[in-house]
Design a binder for these strands. Structure first.
Lengths: 233, 233
DNA sequence: CGCGTGTTTGAACAAGTTCAACCGGCGTGG
DNA sequence: CCACGCCGGTTGAACTTGTTCAAACACGCG
């Protein structure tokens, strides 16, 4: 904020400090260590819908979300695409290319106006060696991502669509700590994420509504009426 | 080997050195550093079929496979189980419990007589701080696991069973560098891994055979006749 | 206001699961 | 050493689930 002397700080590209001081992987460092990192950061700004990187790109930097939201999708061998996860402020991506030399297998797209901070591989590896605690943070993040990813695989492999939707809604309740919330993505994207089609999502949600488990206030706004009942289908 | 002065070294529990000097996460260290790690290691031996840890266990150690093979499975919310991955010599598991306090969501079972080396959380975290290069190795392993796991999710979500089987066989060819190989697991387990049923696996494989893509020499022995044709179904 | 994309609904269709029966190899215990 | 039993694998047929395609709709954004 300090070195931002005009209107909207969100659009002030000299303000990289927040990237570093806000995100979990760095915010435990000493001030002078953080400053050192701030020095090496390059900012990036993307309009809604803009592609940040594509499958096949030889990425060599870590992207940290400073503002906005990013959608990460993969293409399957036969060309169909799947939404893998959504990055919120403080999340990062680009890991694959950081620890192996390979290219991206996924692509990243801004879901709204988004600002990121980029750290290139060489710089990051330096910091990892000098400040081992950063590695511990990233390891912790990785292990939780791994956990989530494997859980998702198991769900898609073993649960029927209905159950997957119910579990997803239950997680939204959890995250928002409220029975009323807005879906974090379109139903189309949700279908892609859950490994089904928009049609099926639509149908199952009206089924849930008919059964009295939920109420769809608008396309995205949900009110859960009977969580227990819904997840135990 | 040196400090093993009786019969079968496989059953010699004073020989922990190989765990450390063989596995990728440690084998780049200096001798004295390795010795330090060897000191803290506890060995574990498991008969075929034995459970190494179960879902719900509050694990607090990293398991490194010294010999044998371990099957990692998860239980879905509704109780169905899925094979997540198979650990070979040099692979490790237990990561979840290492960087968070939580309990295991998966369980591990020895597929044959298996020996592991265990390092507890406290010791490992110490080494990670003192020898940052270990973190880099683990990060690299994690990122490749993450990649694989996400690829698997995408496959299960978007590809039909036939394609998943074909891709799996193609990977076996790749790994064995030969058109002839033995399946790394039973067809029952394969079904669980690919998110389908043994019946379907059986049927699709005979379909492949009828189409002239493969030849099943025995239950586990496969010969790929037309890789191109098979994967482009 | 109008276009485009996301959403809903219907009906036919495809894919894979389920259940049940049967086969065969392997290990165990008599 | 043989017989039995168990588990993995195979096959058939009915059944369930979810997809696909097509059409109509609606909401939001320019």
């Amino acid at each position: 904020m300090d070195n931002c002397n005009h209107g909207n700080c969100h659009h002030c590209n000299t303000n990289h400090k927040s990237c570093v001081s806000l995100v979990p992987i760095f915010n435990h460092l000493e001030d002078n260590q953080m400053n050192e990192i701030v020095e090496t950061i390059k900012p990036g700004k993307y309009k809604k819908g803009e592609i940040i990187y594509s499958a096949g790109d030889s990425s060599d930097s870590l992207y940290i979300v400073n503002m906005g939201r990013i959608k990460i999708s993969r293409l399957s061998e036969s060309g169909k695409e799947q939404l893998v996860r959504i990055l919120e402020v403080g999340d990062f991506t680009g890991e694959l290319a950081l620890f192996s030399e390979s290219t991206h297998e996924s692509y990243a797209q801004a879901m709204e106006y988004t600002e990121v901070c980029m750290i290139n591989r060489r710089d990051l590896q330096n910091f990892l060696i000098r400040y081992p605690s950063i590695s511990l943070k990233i390891l912790s993040e990785f292990s939780s991502r791994l956990e989530k990813s494997e859980r998702q695989t198991t769900r898609v492999s073993t649960e029927k669509v209905e159950t997957r939707i119910a579990l997803f809604l239950a997680e939204c309740v959890d995250k928002n700590k409220s029975m009323e919330f807005t879906l974090p993505m379109s139903k189309k994207d949700l279908a892609s994420y859950l490994g089904t089609t928009p049609e099926t999502i639509s149908r199952k949600l009206t089924d849930f509504e008919d059964a009295g488990y939920i109420k769809q206030k608008t396309a995205r706004k949900m009110l859960i009426l009977d969580l227990e009942g819904m997840v135990s289908v």
